[in-house]
Amino acid sequence: MYAERPSRLAGALVWTNTPADGGAGRVLPDGCMDLLWHEGRLLVAGPDTHAHVTAGEQGAWAGVRFYPGTAPTLLGVPAHELRDRRVALAELWPASRARRLTDLVNAAADPASGLEEAALARAAGTGPPDPLLRQVVAALAAGRPVAATADELGIGARRLHRRSLAAFGYGPKTLARVLRLRRALVLARDGVPFADTAARAGYADQAHLARDVREFTGLPLGELLAGGG
């Protein structure tokens, strides 16, 4: 069973998941990175460009899902190095430092709370997130074109691309597509007809929506909404 709640860390979510039958699950791209706990180990989930299928991953999981662009500063690793990967924290940090954090999380009342406290402590030590990155996410999530976003923020397309790779794991055009997909799925899950969903989310037409859904999730939209992911 999956459950989530807002974190005390701005923009983040704290979640837990215990698969009921060990069946396949599907984690869809969302522009985010997660700090994960599983059976006493800490891992980092990088930003995805396609659905991550969780078949065979038994046991309880917990995680903190960071607001897009904030995890690289907190974890000390550029997002593009972890794109489409799940990596043990001990592979990213010095062994003693990773072990200390793992011990603190395991000693908490529950892993989710331990992860949240760890994230809050890291945030307190690294300072506030870069406001420009939040502006990028807000603009692209609202459907603003990438070129217009770069111009409005006064940073230029090349600089925006470099910043996006480090912060989000991919360029702004891919991030915009991921965020557009998220908009479309919210509408479709609310029962909006697929053609209207495509128009309102910013796709050229329903066929364009269908292609993006299949590319990012691995399933047709109808199957995805019926419980395939």
Rank of each mutant, 00 (worst) to 15 (best):
T126F: 13
R134W: 09
G125D: 15
L104W: 14
A121C: 08
Q58N: 07
R100F: 13
H50P: 14
E39I: 00
T73C: 00
P111M: 05
M33T: 05
A138Y: 02
G69M: 01
R122T: 14
A55F: 11
A139C: 05
L115P: 02
C32V: 02
C32G: 03
P128E: 14
D21G: 08
E81P: 00
R86Q: 10
R65T: 09
R97N: 08
P29M: 11
L74I: 12
R83I: 02
E116G: 12
V136N: 03
V87P: 03
G76S: 09
L132A: 10
H52M: 10
A121I: 11
L89Q: 02
L42M: 04
P111R: 12
V137I: 14
R85L: 11
L89K: 05
D30M: 01
G46I: 04
L82V: 13
T102A: 03
P128R: 11
G40Q: 07
R122A: 13
L82P: 10
L101Y: 07
A139G: 07
V105L: 05
G25R: 10
S96H: 11
A55E: 13
R134V: 13
G22P: 01
F66S: 08
R100G: 09
A90F: 04
G46V: 02
L140D: 00
T73R: 05
A141M: 03
T73L: 11
C32K: 12
P29R: 14
L28Y: 01
A108F: 06
F66E: 10
L89E: 00
G23A: 09
G76T: 06
G114D: 10
L43T: 02
A90N: 00
P131Q: 11
A24L: 12
P94R: 04
G125L: 11
D34G: 02
A107G: 03
L92I: 02
R41E: 14
G31F: 01
D110L: 07
P131K: 13
A112W: 07
V64R: 04
D84A: 09
V64M: 03
G40I: 06
R99G: 13
A109D: 14
A141E: 11
V146N: 08
L82G: 07
L132M: 14
L82F: 03
A95S: 04
V87Q: 00
Q135W: 08
E91P: 01
L133M: 14
A123P: 10
L35M: 15
A95L: 03
H50V: 14
C32Y: 02
R144I: 01
P111G: 06
R85I: 01
R86N: 13
L133H: 10
Y67F: 10
L120G: 14
A148N: 05
A119D: 12
A124D: 07
R144G: 04
D110F: 07
L35W: 09
P68K: 09
L74S: 04
D34K: 00
E116I: 15
V146P: 09
T73G: 05
G69I: 12
